[in-house]
Amino acid sequence: METTTATAKKESSLSKAKEWAKGLFLRKKGAEAIERRPKQPKRKMSRMQKREEIAGWIFCSPLLIGLLLFTFVPMFCSLFWSFYHFDGFTLAPAGLYNFVHAFQDEEVGQSALNTLIYACVNIPLNLVLSYFLALLVNNAHKFTRVFRVLFYLPVVIPAVVSGLLWKDIFDPTFGIFNKILNSIGLPSFPFFQEASTSMFSLILMGCWGIGGGMILWLSAFKNIPKDLYESAKVDGANAFQRFANITIPMSTPIIFFNLVTSVIGSLQYNGTLIFAPRSGRGYDNSLYLYGVKIYWEAMKSGNIGYASALSWLLCIVISILTFILFKTSKWVFYGGE
């Protein structure tokens, strides 16, 4: 009997152990389940997330359709046609001819050089001049606000009107500039009428747009905490040191932004179409800019294929320059670091 009870006990203890083990197993399962649990509410949430996901695509769809129709399809066409002789009607394979020809075309060389000169002089000149202009109006006098508006007004003039205006002002015989020059005893200046003075006149004309840069500089100044200057003064920094060590580093984001946008802008500039002689090319092609060359090839000569190749070359140059600007932008100080 005892043995049976003992065995029963043994059995019962065995079954207990089994149960315990089972419990352990279940607990482990439970723990696994708990571990897995974070996934479950996610699955429950997913219906709301799915709705948001769908809503996101719906809200973005106009952009995607627009980009496809008015950017990617034309881009693809342009890339395709750049390997063809294409006048808008007949396609004839050209291989790499258009790209090779671009490097042999004297007009391309001339216009690229003109564009380069224009960009290399115009951008730094405007940056510096607009800085001094901003410095001049960076005070809180009552009348300064009026002057800021006055300085910005030339920028407000639409490009066509400004072209019309400068064509008139620079006119060799009827122009007001030559009258002013003559009245102070200087000889007449040919401006756009001679190849040698054309580029100078174009850059001079651009100087009336420094109000735009002024606004950017002013907003840069506004963002520099005043106490930086105060503590620098206490530490005995002179005006130049404050400029070099506070104003310039704190303004670098604006300088950088200005640099990138104006490089992209001035390489494509074709505003000379409005006012330069010979339909925007200037005498001896002295004002022939790259943007005008592309327009000329596509619209006047009907070489759509060649113009496409030229515009892709421009795109490559702009991409490389933007890439270089961003890669070498370690000098830009974004604060807080």
Binding site: Q268, A298, A307
Partner: peptide, 16 residues
């Protein structure tokens, strides 16, 4: 697409 020069799309759009 912001850095893409306008001419890359303008001329093909003219044809389209």
């Amino acid at each position: 697409t912001m850095t893409l020069p306008g001419v890359v799309t303008q001329i093909p759009l003219y044809v389209i």
